[in-house]
Amino acid sequence: MNSKKKTVKTFVSVIAVVALSLIFSLLESNSYNSNTPNFRTSSYSANNVSAVSQTTSSTPTTSTSTSVSSSVKETSSFGSNHLNSNVKSDNKKKKFVGPLLYQGSNVRATYNQVKEGQTLFDESCASCHGAQASGSDRAPNLVGLGPATVQFWVSTGRMPLSNPIIQPIRKPVKFTQAQILDIVSYVSSLAPGGVLIPNIKGYNSSSIANGASLFDINCAGCHTITGAGDALASGAYAPSLHQATPEQVAEAIRTGPANMPRFNPGVLTNSQVNSLVKYVTQGIQKPDNAGGWDMGGIGPVAEGFIGLLIGVGLLMLGAFWVGDRQ
């Protein structure tokens, strides 16, 4: 009887502790969730003024009817609904001034790019970000974010999002290069500002050693020294860098997607960004990997696992083979 009581007691206490831990974790995730909306509204409110005015004044259907009045705006400045105006007129194509896309270059998005981009945006993005890209309760406002941010999120396959989680994951890209540029053009045409797509043309001639040193100081703290990535607090994570393209590396540095801090030109100069791009795409992605299988580049955890499981395990089997089993 006594022992039974004891086991019951221990069982109950075990359940109590497990329940406590669950409550703790729930509390934690709750506090995170309650934080996120605040975070969103505060960080995107800067752009909200224009966004709100756009959504109230016009939807695609209404804007076609008001096309004539708005057509004047398009030529002089960025307007949200310039494309819904009378498209057939060739004059307007000529007058159209697209947004700047690239840093240090005068290339502007063409009328057709913006137009195509709007179609793609309506198909794949508008359901969350809103028809005017001004955001909704589940997605942030994109107006004024600039080309680099949009290009990064779409070209890494993170957007469109299949599953709304804390931090989107890298997926196969849904669009072609040209289509991505169309979407970038369209979103950038909505408002000026934001970060232009960084110019990394000269990155191959910059110093890889300089890049390695900069990487150790600025990036390894989250992405790990091998670029394998790792979990950060509260479900966020630093992704692996092994699939990033040169352009994406530079865009991520300049725009700071998700939890990543943003490194503006005052922190890292353009040539430093180029060195980092070179180190990530060469030193990290194609390391001088002497010594065999790298086991995911996550260091001693994998090494200990292999050492114990394969090394000691195999030798124990060897002992079992050599010895007597009875």
Binding site: D216, I217, G221, T224, I225, G283, P300, E303, L308
Partner: peptide, 27 residues
């Protein structure tokens, strides 16, 4: 011969102001 262990050339020289995430000791 076949399993890489502790590729220190990837890790770089230690300097007190540098740090990497995901650092563990040996098992």
């Amino acid at each position: 011969a076949f399993a890489q262990i502790n590729p220190i050339w990837l890790y770089g020289q230690y300097l007190p102001y540098k740090v990497s995430y995901a650092v563990q000791p040996d098992w």
